[in-house]
Design a protein around this nucleic acid. Sequence first.
DNA 1: GTCTATATTGTGATAGAC
DNA 2: GTCTATCACAATATAGAC
Lengths: 212, 212
Amino acid sequence: MEMAGEDQETEQRILDAAHAVFVRRGTEGARMQEIAEEAGVNKALLHYYFRSKDKLAEAVFQRAGRRLFPSVIATLLSDLTLEEKVRRVVDIELDNLSASPFLPGYVLCEINHHPERVAQLAGALAGQPVEGFGRGIAAGLQAQIDAQVAAGTLRPIAAEQFMANLLSLCLFPFAAQPMLRAVMGWGPEGFERFTAERKRTLADFFLNALRP
Amino acid sequence: MEMAGEDQETEQRILDAAHAVFVRRGTEGARMQEIAEEAGVNKALLHYYFRSKDKLAEAVFQRAGRRLFPSVIATLLSDLTLEEKVRRVVDIELDNLSASPFLPGYVLCEINHHPERVAQLAGALAGQPVEGFGRGIAAGLQAQIDAQVAAGTLRPIAAEQFMANLLSLCLFPFAAQPMLRAVMGWGPEGFERFTAERKRTLADFFLNALRP
DNA sequence: GTCTATATTGTGATAGAC
DNA sequence: GTCTATCACAATATAGAC
């Protein structure tokens, strides 16, 4: 039913613009007007494609979630060794986030004020209901951990703590980036140096913590 | 110039109410109406005491910051040993945050969308300009780290990474609490069990990571 | 200090031409 | 599909009585 072939491209432009504006203003602080300007289209078009601001916010959040989580999940569910998983997650996350440093802050804010959206998100990630999603990951990790502990090559740790620690160390500095910048008196290059150093040292820091 | 002696108490009630509403709705999502209801006063009174929503948000943020940061800063600046500092920060933060689990999420959101407020905040913390504030802390820590590294009792680490790691591990799980709840399929008691376990194990995890 | 009533602006959303 | 014009309401803020 489309004529110009512009429709999909326009929808993408709107999504990109909405993403940018939502990230910098927050979902509630964002204005449809600003999104329209950023996309180079009229306000009314946003409603044509996404009915309401809430629906648009939902779509943007889903897309952001699909960019932030799946690679970590896939890595943790893979059959790599624990050490390889840790190195891989750190590498992937720090690379991804260097490219979009404000994603964690946006996702955290959104989750805090709209926890109901997490359910639909996890569903979108693997077609699974969210309730037990992390549990499956934790169960697999725990088995791997227990095996290495029995072999004497790992300190005991609960899989939930393992995951929380790993994600904390990867995500938090980005989520708190503006605070770090201000408190440490960094310019833009300061945070980048910090992140580069982090790429070199974080996996070793984490693995050393688990050494028996 | 006050008559009823109610004024200070009312101002506090408004601050408390605003805090509660800002935390659960976010600054932009919060409505003056809801704050007034929560405080049990009229909308107009909020303007009488705080002129504008923005000023009110500023006041709430300052107060939250004064509750979140000073104890950590004081501990890191003290002359305790590194190990004592780590144990102390973990204990204090995890206890404080158990009592107000949504504070980190609120502060992170606010900082992301209003980075300019961090400046005034740090000023309020110690009467110092914010620019070099964290640098002083980092410098002191670095000296302590270098000494222990030279003595062969510590793995080398940059003080900035040290601080980032410590704060990440303490704060992130609270900031990401709604996500953890959903993904791990926890009820309210699930997160509390997780936090209790964390109080027991986090300091050791961190210290072990720095073992040479 | 606290309230009621009102002003004023901003903002999401729709109708309808092209 | 895209725009212009407009509606309807929500929300901050103020004026003024008590």
